[in-house]
């Protein structure tokens, strides 16, 4: 993998981001819905509406609004939220850690749990464990995340009392230090689990299929003939070679995870970007919407780039010029 390849991949990001900017700006601004109407609600008179429109530049031609926006984005300025009256960057920065924590935990659970379950299932294809994992994965992948989240709050959190029903922290306690960390971790378990379920299902299925395929390869037969233990054959030789499609697919799942996070954050009242996106959509807060879409788009592009690089790194057969 050469430096030129990395540079070329980075340059490919520019037209992708430019296209994303144009499409999202037009989609958001041309969609029905007046942000000033959503902002002022029933509280504004005609003069106030006009004043607000001028204040946010919404009285100017769309092309002029777009060019101003692009120039500002190029300088790292995503504008000010219509609703919150503060920079979009601040609003995103406030919510980003919660979403990163939730998605990071979900991805960790999905990666580790999915790989382990898939590998164990592949040890005896069509055996009871394999059938159990496959069936559960099918159900887990098919269940809508919002419904699963509601079931989890109702039956696990509320029903057993083992986990909090809502939020990221206890409303009454004012923890700090390690107590705060444990409090957040306690609140994280259920939403992260819910968000991870479909990813665990996907990863376990991919891992299982890949490992079963690798186990029928000649090098595995050779390894067995050399007297390697079944576990060593599985985890040292077959599994790493089965990981390539898993890594590739995980890298493209970021967008799905974000959409899942919106629903999970809504049900669990988790104070992350998903809820910010939901609120911005309901209130036609264009700058926040654009900022979030750009952030997700950048993240997806970056994730794909990283996936390519990691794929090349873990598979010596792959060479880029």
């Amino acid at each position: 993998m050469s430096a030129w390849y990395v540079l070329r991949r980075l340059l490919q990001v520019i037209p992708a981001v430019a296209a994303i900017l144009v499409v999202t700006f037009l989609a958001i601004h041309l969609a029905p819905g007046d942000p000033i109407a959503a902002l002022a609600g029933e509280g504004g008179d005609v003069g106030y509406y006009q004043f607000m429109r001028e204040k946010f530049g919404l009285d100017r031609p769309l092309l002029q609004q777009f060019l101003t926006y692009v120039a500002n984005v190029a300088q790292g300025d995503l504008g000010n939220s219509y609703v919150q009256g503060r920079p979009v960057m601040d609003a995103i920065a406030q919510r980003l850690p919660a979403t990163l924590l939730l998605m990071g935990a979900a991805v960790s659970v999905a990666s580790i749990g999915g790989v382990v379950l898939g590998a164990l299932a592949a040890r005896r294809p069509s055996g009871p464990f394999d059938v159990g994992v496959s069936t559960t994965a099918l159900v887990g992948y098919a269940v809508p995340v919002f419904w699963l989240a509601q079931l989890a709050t109702l039956f696990i959190a509320f029903g057993t009392g083992w986990f909090p029903i809502q939020g990221m922290t206890d409303l009454r306690a004012n923890y700090s230090g390690i107590s705060h960390v444990l409090d957040v971790a306690h609140h994280l378990v259920l939403p992260a689990f819910v968000l991870a379920v479909s990813e665990v299902a996907l990863v376990s299925r991919l891992t299982r299929t890949g490992v079963v395929q690798e186990m029928s390869s000649a090098y595995v037969t050779t390894a067995r003939a050399n007297g390697l233990s079944p576990s060593r054959v599985l985890f040292r030789h077959a599994l790493p070679n089965a990981m390539l499609p898993v890594v590739t697919v995980m890298g493209t799942r970021l967008g799905y995870l974000v959409s899942g996070a919106i629903l999970v954050e809504t049900v669990f009242a988790w104070p992350g970007l998903g809820r910010l996106l939901l609120t911005a959509t309901q209130t036609n807060d264009h700058p926040v919407l654009l900022g979030l879409v750009l952030l997700v788009a950048f993240s997806v592009v970056a994730a794909n780039l990283v996936t390519d690089l990691v794929t090349a790194a873990i598979d010596p057969r792959i060479r880029y010029d």
């Binding site: 959190a157 009454r172 609120t279």
Partner: peptide, 20 residues
């Protein structure tokens, strides 16, 4: 301390569960 709930169902469960 005021917390905003996008879902009435979650708020009601939290109230019943003693969190509010």
């Amino acid at each position: 301390v005021e917390r905003f709930f996008p879902s009435n169902q979650t708020a009601s469960l939290a109230l019943e569960g003693g969190e509010l």
